Amino acid sequence: MRARATVGECTRALEAVWPRHAIGLHASAGIYEETLSSDARWKAACEQVDELTSTLGRKPRVMITKLGQDGHDRGAQAVAAALIDAGFEVVSNEFFISPAEVARRALANEVDMIGVSSLAGAHVELTSQLMRELRARHAAIPVVLGGNVQAESAGVLKALGVAEFFLPGTRMHEIVLRLVRLVAC
């Protein structure tokens, strides 16, 4: 820095010697299954996942990811845990991942959809980039977005092809049902 190196130049020099620290999304199974075992709406949603699993011949596979510098993971972890308990296979990424890398990994993991969790406010730019990356790879993978999304942003992203939006407070059984419908199409 004293020699007027940029942060990027310093980062590249450090990464040449040491690997970048990666923080992953981690979801625990069994939380929702136990807590909601007597909830009729949850049971019905899980039955829909079972039917979809029978149709597909495997569990529906969803990638849960954060884009860019968004480090808030509580919502993503909660949704991932609920999806696992409902019968989905969940593929997750580490934080601070680029849209290009998400697209590459989505194809490599043969996911049925990508769920982007966003609280950082850059969701229009980053999700737009993800949509472009998927189109460039000729990947018809639906993208859904969860988090704090303003109406103007939702309109822009809907026009770009984002299939669903899940705002804070959306019930887990509703998320499960909407994702099942999306994969079944």
Rank of each mutant, 00 (worst) to 15 (best):
E9F: 04
E174H: 07
P142L: 06
F88I: 13
A45S: 13
L167E: 14
A81M: 05
G75E: 04
R132W: 07
L134S: 00
T127P: 07
L107P: 01
F165E: 06
D50C: 03
S92L: 03
A122Y: 01
V176R: 06
E164T: 00
A184N: 15
R171F: 14
L126T: 01
A154H: 02
E125V: 10
R137G: 01
S118A: 15
A40P: 11
P19A: 00
Q48A: 11
E15W: 13
V144Q: 02
V49G: 03
L83F: 06
E94D: 12
A140H: 10
R178Q: 13
F96I: 00
G8A: 12
M1Y: 08
A139N: 02
A120S: 13
G71Y: 07
L179Y: 06
R171W: 07
R74G: 05
V7S: 08
A27E: 05
V162T: 05
G57P: 15
F96D: 12
C46M: 10
T11D: 05
R137K: 12
G30S: 06
V90D: 08
V144P: 02
R41Q: 08
E152I: 14
S38Q: 10
E94R: 11
S98P: 01
L130D: 03
C10E: 09
M1N: 04
C46W: 02
R2V: 07
L25K: 02
I175E: 04
R74V: 12
K158E: 11
T53G: 02
K158T: 14
S28R: 15
L130Q: 02
I114Q: 03
V91R: 11
R105V: 10
A22Q: 12
G121F: 04
S118F: 03
A22P: 00
D112F: 10
L14G: 04
R2P: 08
F96H: 15
